[in-house]
Design a protein around this nucleic acid. Structure first.
Length: 258
DNA sequence: ATGTCGACGTGCCGTCGA
């Protein structure tokens, strides 16, 4: 079984790109972020014709998350985090499918720091971490995939000093990520690629893609039972090089599950 | 500070968030 996460940065503006990627790679489960589409403008029909059933949490202009499934209908278990301080921001959706519980997240960017957006990011990560702990306590296979807007470590950024004071890399968010892993989650990409940098994002600015000035922001965290079934992981870098690409590339894992 | 995207409504450019 293959599971991917992709910050699409506008699902309607990039629908052809998304459909071509789905046809090429045929993931079983897909988590999408930054739909930038209101609930009613999600392309449910086109995805269905491509073989994918969807649940989604839309929002006009910003944010928005979705879970797609190739072989089954996802059963929605949650939209939004418990005790969400900004419930109008669509940043979390969760569904049961194929015997898994899948959480798809789009964490706040948090810039500029300090400021209200930074405060919101820390609050959101705290709520997310509390929810993650509850999911682990269920003792079922869980995957938490999405755009965490966190650079976990120095090796996950082309030039750490350039990002030292950025909300993606400040010590508080790295600590939040470390505390998540400490609960028992497995960072799939870091586990399969412990040494080399594996970027998932290249800024549109300053020719970041051409310089390979990348960041690792998109993560797939596995509960312990699933981690034991992790076979492979990677990033579809080619997607970032295409015309009109999202600034993120899809990240994927392969699990030894039928 | 830089300067590039997509989406939307203040509509076919200006503004916002990233």
């Amino acid at each position: 079984m293959r599971i991917a996460t992709y910050n699409i940065n506008g699902i309607n503006g990039r629908l052809d790109t998304l459909l071509a990627w789905l046809a090429d790679t045929q993931p079983d489960i897909v988590c999408l972020q930054e739909l930038k589409a209101p609930q009613a403008k999600f392309p449910e029909r086109q995805l269905k014709e491509a073989g994918y059933a969807s649940v989604w949490h839309g929002q006009s202009r910003w944010n928005g998350v979705a879970i797609l499934s190739r072989d089954s209908e996802p059963v929605l278990t949650r939209r939004g985090l418990p005790r969400d301080s900004h419930p109008s921001q669509s940043r979390y959706i969760e569904a049961a499918l194929n015997g898994l519980l899948v959480g798809c997240l789009y964490a706040p960017n948090g810039n500029p720091a300090p400021g209200p957006k930074w405060d919101y990011k820390l609050r959101w990560l705290k709520q997310f971490t509390a929810h993650a702990k509850q999911l682990l306590a269920l003792d079922v296979p869980v995957i938490l995939a999405g755009d965490y807007n966190i650079i976990p470590a120095e090796r996950d950024v082309y030039n750490p000093d350039r990002w030292r004071n950025d909300a993606l890399f400040l010590p508080e968010v790295r600590k939040a990520y470390a505390s998540l892993l400490k609960q028992g989650w497995c960072d799939a990409i870091a586990t399969i690629h412990p040494d080399k940098p594996v970027y998932t994002f290249w800024d549109y600015l300053r020719q970041a893609w051409e310089r390979n000035a990348g960041l690792r922001l998109d993560h797939l965290l596995l509960s312990p039972g699933l981690a034991a079934r992790l076979k492979d992981a990677g990033v579809n870098r080619v997607m970032r090089g295409r015309p009109k690409a999202s600034d993120h590339a899809p990240a994927w894992i392969a699990l030894d599950i039928k």
